[in-house]
Design a protein around this nucleic acid. Structure first.
Lengths: 232, 232
DNA sequence: CCTCGTTGTATTGTTGACAATAATCATTAA
DNA sequence: TTAATGATTATTGTCAACAATACAACGAGG
């Protein structure tokens, strides 16, 4: 059985040349998967020790994490891992809806035919994985983001790509880890992905944007209800 | 004669408690108004001297500027002030169109009546300033962004607000300084602003978004033609 | 018992020195 | 003359010590 191919969104090569970057990647991963608990206080000297570096590079890592909103920092008082709440997640999903809608529109205009074919193949793979018990985990965790990443990349808009991939998706991943549950109904999601791809293939910008926005706002509704029931 | 009221988008209180923040603000201003030329190389020790600080805080400032894309940094090789090109500006305007369209939609849903009234007054003031020779400079430079800022704030979406105000508007300001010219036809822009405000007042989300997007994509067309003629 | 001010401690902000890296320039061989 | 190669230098990356700040504990006064 072929393993689902690795995600092609290397935020940074894991063997980065600078210590600050490596520390950044490590901490980011630990925040996203909950090893560093939400809302927990960050003490520079402690973390420096923990990640085997000195305060200098660690400080740079923290600053970068602050920029992508994984960390909140208040001057002279210290930093904490962000604590996701519903309002914040709603803001993120709304921004994402807007940006990805635009990305889908641009993809319909600009995506090369070959890439569209490849996108179809990706969805075929996802379909197989849905029926496959162990694949389910993969599909629900990362396959979904993989699809969305390809659309963002196809937009050929650097700003949108960087903000989706570098910031919004990270926060969404973190939210998923938190809730412990997966995005709902993979089959329904897949069907929508196919619709969107088809609109792109037909170069129907308007429809592509509309479908993407509907897809994401639908996803938010289910995520929201999960968060609300967890929160009482 | 009453001076146009100061912009209410203090990115940071100018008397920030930390040296790194003050340095950041200074450099940012210098980049935006061209004192630090586009594409010019940044040498940490030189700048540290120039801004009266040591390399530590200056480094933090540079990192923050990198995050808002005013500076480009390559590991071990140094940093440069970003050099705006047409593709980059197009990406920015497209992202802005998407985000501000959504912001207008949210504003139509959420903006308190009092704030809408205040928005009307702001536009009245702009109208006066258009006929006033010295006001023209103000309106064209900052008044336009002032309006857009209020919509973004009214969306009550933190992510959108921060990204528009903290990043996109800065780059657009920088672009304006570069071209030397002002946004075109203040009267036409004002008319569109009124339309948008009116849609918000009527709580017509769909229309508010549509008008805002049209407004911004129109602005891009004229900016683009200016850039192209400057560039040959 | 509560409030306010004071002191002490922990943590961040800042600095200058040192190490590592990459760009530059001169030198040599083809 | 040009291309490759090696030493040199400028610049960034990293570190550890020092200063400034905010928070907590404590005590005095109401």
């Amino acid at each position: 059985m072929t393993k689902p191919q690795p995600l092609n969104q290397p935020d940074q090569l894991s063997e980065s040349s600078t210590l600050a970057s490596r520390t950044y990647e490590s901490i980011k991963a630990d925040i996203i998967d909950g090893t560093l608990a939400q809302g927990s206080k960050i003490v520079e000297s402690d973390l420096a020790l923990k990640y085997g570096t000195s305060r200098g590079p660690l400080r740079e890592a923290i600053h970068r994490l602050e920029q992508i909103k994984l960390v909140i920092r208040v001057p002279h008082a210290g930093s904490r891992v962000v604590a996701l709440n519903i309002k914040m997640m709603e803001d993120i999903y709304t921004a994402r809806e807007s940006l990805e809608g635009m990305a889908a529109r641009l993809a319909a205009r600009l995506m090369p035919d070959d890439d569209i074919k490849s996108l179809h193949r990706l969805l075929d793979q996802h379909e197989q994985n849905i029926n496959d018990a162990e694949g389910k985990v993969y599909f629900q965790r990362e396959g979904d983001i993989d699809f969305h990443f390809r659309i963002a990349a196809a937009s050929q808009n650097e700003w949108i790509l960087e903000n989706l991939n570098g910031e919004l998706y990270q926060l969404i991943r973190m939210g998923r880890h938190q809730s412990g549950r997966m995005p709902s109904r993979p089959a329904a999601a897949l069907a929508q992905h196919r619709q969107i791809t088809s609109a792109i293939e037909q170069r129907d910008e308007e429809l592509a944007e509309l479908l993407m926005r509907r897809h994401i706002s639908g996803a938010w509704k289910t995520v929201k209800s999960i968060l609300e029931e967890n929160h009482e």
